[in-house]
């Protein structure tokens, strides 16, 4: 019987930039940061109140993929093809104001939906997330 999600992957275009975004703008904590050769690290972060979930910030890099795959993934990620997750918060208006002040790009301002209040933002690579205060 499956019980939990412990790791999930987000493909990012630049690991250093992603590290700054996920820690300084989203407030996540670094769990593991291990160099694994030139320009590639095993880098995972967790939401502050969910240490058991590691988000792998995996680089779109020729160290791991063929050039044609890198080109295709770079195109898809950067144009916002992939939605990653729903992130919850206690107060969406305060969180929205704070993230906006830190320069995070929102494509949808907080709006009441039948399940709560939701906004949508993009990470520094183009992946999109829902930010929600569930009712």
């Amino acid at each position: 019987m499956i019980t939990q999600v412990t790791h999930m992957t987000v493909y990012v275009l630049d690991q250093n930039r992603a590290l700054d975004f996920y820690t300084n703008k989203l407030g996540f904590r670094v769990v593991t940061d291990v160099p694994m050769g030139k320009d590639v690290r095993w880098l995972t972060v967790s939401p502050p109140q969910q240490p058991g979930l590691e988000i792998v910030l995996s680089p779109v890099s020729t160290a791991m993929f063929k050039q044609e795959t890198v080109d295709a993934m770079t195109d898809l990620v950067s144009k916002g093809t992939f939605g990653v997750a729903v992130l919850t918060c206690d107060d969406i208006y305060a969180t929205y104001e704070e993230m906006t002040a830190k320069g995070v790009e929102f494509t949808k301002a907080p709006k009441k939906e039948f399940y709560g209040t939701e906004a949508i933002f993009k990470d520094d690579s183009g992946n999109w997330f829902s930010l929600a205060q569930l009712t």
Partner: peptide, 21 residues
């Protein structure tokens, strides 16, 4: 995209600025 239309917007902004300070 238009800005959010929610109550107490300015109150939120001031409190968030205090937190960021």
């Amino acid at each position: 995209m238009t800005g959010p239309q929610y109550p107490r917007m300015y109150l939120y902004r001031r409190l968030v600025q205090a937190k960021l300070f």
